[in-house]
């Protein structure tokens, strides 16, 4: 026999509402983890982080309403707290971000088909894209095996 739900649960948020709520959470834990991961992947690349110094980069996942905020010092990427005025915001759905990370999709391809958008400092976006492209595939493989 199926019991009726108590009244209090009748207005329980559906999944889209829950994902909207996650936009209110402090982004820092995600940003911290993301920075740790990227810094590890980039550690042998002799990367120049100066283009991001004093600026902020927001990666925004449109479907799950999650934003990561990154900055940099001279040596590495650093996580930033939420900010309205990121120097550059790159937006896409989570699935496409994952396809980018796995090197299954080219960002220009996503951009042409309007699945990825970029607002703000375009040059910073190019720098970031090219920074990620320096990561050797063997690094990604090593990471997977961990």
């Amino acid at each position: 026999m199926k019991l009726p739900l108590p009244k209090i649960f009748h207005n329980m948020p559906t999944l889209p509402v829950l994902t909207n709520l996650s936009g209110l959470l402090p982004p820092s834990p995600h940003s911290v983890l993301f920075c740790l991961l990227l810094n590890r992947l980039l550690q042998n690349q002799h990367a120049d982080f100066s283009p991001l110094q004093g600026k902020s980069l927001c990666l925004h996942s449109q479907d799950i309403k999650l934003s990561l905020f990154l900055g940099s010092n001279q040596k590495k990427l650093i996580p930033l707290g939420f900010r309205h005025d990121a120097t550059l915001t790159i937006s896409a759905n989570l699935r496409d971000f994952i396809r980018l990370a796995l090197r299954q999709e080219d960002p220009d391809t996503l951009f042409f088909s309007r699945r990825l958008s970029m607002e703000g400092d375009t040059e910073l976006g190019l720098w970031f894209k090219n920074l990620l492209d320096t990561i050797d595939p063997s690094q990604l493989t090593a990471l997977r095996s961990h």
Partner: peptide
Amino acid sequence: RQRSPAYVAQ
């Protein structure tokens, strides 16, 4: 040359 490795592979 401005494209990413994913494009080059495909």
